[in-house]
Write a protein that binds this DNA or RNA. Structure first.
Lengths: 337, 337
DNA sequence: TTGAAAGCGATACCAT
DNA sequence: ATGGTATCGCTTTCAA
């Protein structure tokens, strides 16, 4: 391709003027700027990545570490990756993928070689090995998720604890004192950081409101529809009529189908709240109240924090918990008896 | 971090010797090489990415374009992304993610700025817009998948046509003359490149073998278990006893469950072959013959082609179709009547 | 087998 | 408002 020299020659200016005109870091007169822009388009000029990295102090690349475990829920995970990539591009950054089991090796490598300006951490485990690496590094790192030991870390996430409390409050407000938490798979409560936070919020607030909570998981390692159905059946048999669902779409569908089979009407006979769903609950057969998990929100916030740190803002390491939002759809009603 | 100068000083040699010792592009005596390696580890030296890009002619980065459509099957897609990333890392390359609708813009940008050495194309559509970009570019590009118009392109993929033929042959060999192809979702036959190739192989070989094929899809845009079940029910009602399944795991499970409900035994009353499944069919309740789609194979091959092109091999643009492999599990039997 | 030095193509400081 | 140029850290000729 063409270099900044050719652009300068074509526009009849010096290379520094071209550089400043393009970066905007120094005022350039209207007419010279226009001539430069013309030359740029005429030549199809694109600054060379390597040269910019070397000369400037920015690579315009973020690393995204994602340890893709076997039990990762692919659709949700993809939504986060996509949201991160889109948010980053909007700020002028590309995403470099760091998969591998050896997440630490990758982080160290890209940081030491100055390949990336910052690192975004996805799919955070409670005892994540990447926490130690992040602490030992100068490269700004933002966790999307909250590990157990998060001192000195910058984290962004939906406030799952608050989601749990909010869901309980709505059901308790409606008069329910017995609640079922239809949760995630068993393994996710050990390997992931957020299911337990929602569980904690639910249990704590339930205690405060004098309500009982029955917590059920929905499969060993992957969601098992049969397990979900029998859990729902037995909850209904025990007279339960209030559900908080923190689970994938299949689980929601299984719940709805069991309720339909029994002729139980949501929002009349039974109350249901979908908590922290990352899929579109509006696409379900029945509309239900939802406290959504919006990957875009977390990812944009995370990218923003990274960019601001690079721009020199002194942001203290901190946990940023995004407040939940309650979307009503009439699926919560007072108990009927 | 430390620079090549510091390593050179620590080892008592010149920087060029360090460079050559590390790249192996020039013979270096045993003892100096050892001293250099010691210095490298002692200082924790990592060559700076930007400097290498600028000076050398390699960035050691591949772009991976993936236009993440709404109808993309997330688990399969993730398997391909992961396989590509792993294969690339093994060859010393990182993966830069190019999502976006604007796939073309991204490809042009990373190519023009010399950010990447090659581009890998995933999730190929029959009339993919990235085909034109690839043709207009000097940057080596490898498609994982085969677009309709693929002249002058380098493509790698499982030979889906041959998969279809192989499946038909096995059923025909067993004596079946009526075959059901339980296929993908409707939209995938328009938006993806491979389902139609398998369909073509099945239909063509069926004609050659004098067999009839009933092709059914499994939902509009996403797999719909109800649709699958009723399709299977009606096929069974019509006396069909031979199935080729080219579909996601949910579809397999639905098929097995209908068969079980009817008391039909696989490998005895009914013959089933799973064609081009990218999940582990061994995890199903019943073992069935499988012609697997192994993402690792395609992705490694693609990475290899890219690397070899960069290493100066003159590889003519060509379609590389990987031959299918048949894994028997006793699920094919002669018709019973 | 090794060293010296000329780039690579930007950024940003120092002048004017 | 603009230009000249040192500089970033490496790769790779050219010499010895």
């Amino acid at each position: 391709m063409s270099t900044i020299h050719e652009v300068a020659k074509a526009a009849g200016v010096s290379i520094s003027t071209v550089s400043y005109a393009l970066s905007g870091k120094r005022p350039v007169s209207e007419k010279t700027r226009l001539r430069i822009e013309d030359a740029v388009t005429a030549l199809g000029y694109q600054p060379e990545a390597g040269a910019r990295m070397l000369a400037g102090r920015r690579t315009h690349i973020f690393a995204l570490t994602e340890p893709l475990r076997a039990d990762t829920h692919a659709p949700t995970h993809m939504a986060f990756v996509l949201a991160t990539a889109v948010a980053a591009r909007r700020r002028g950054y590309d995403i470099l993928l760091l998969t591998d089991e050896q997440a630490s090796e990758g982080m160290n490598r890209v940081a030491a070689s100055k390949l990336v300006d910052a690192i975004l951490v996805l799919d955070v485990a409670p005892d994540d090995e990447r926490v130690a690496i992040a602490r030992s590094m100068r490269t700004p790192t933002v966790f999307i998720g909250v590990p157990d030991d998060h001192s000195d870390l910058t984290c962004v996430d939906l406030d799952f604890d608050a989601v749990g409390r909010l869901a309980v409050d709505r059901l308790a407000d409606a008069g329910h004192s017995r609640i079922v938490l239809l949760g995630q798979t068993e393994v996710s409560y050990r390997r992931s950081n957020f299911p337990r936070r929602l569980l904690h919020g639910v249990q704590q607030r339930a205690t405060e409101r004098g309500a009982d909570v029955d917590w059920v998981t929905t499969g060993e390692i992957a969601t098992d529809v049969a397990v979900v159905r029998s859990a729902v059946e037995s909850a209904l048999d025990q007279g339960h009529r209030a559900f908080i669902v923190h689970a994938v779409d299949d689980t929601h569908e299984a719940l709805l189908s069991v309720l339909a089979e029994r002729g139980l009407r949501i929002g009349v006979d039974v109350s249901v709240i979908s908590a922290a769903a990352s899929f579109d609950t509006a696409a379900l057969a029945v509309q239900i109240d939802t406290i959504p998990l919006v990957p875009q929100r977390s990812c944009e916030f995370a990218v923003d924090l990274a960019v601001r740190q690079l721009d020199g803002e002194r942001l203290p390491p901190e946990i940023h918990l995004l407040p939940p939002e309650y979307l009503s759809a009439g699926s919560v009603a007072p108990p009927r008896d």
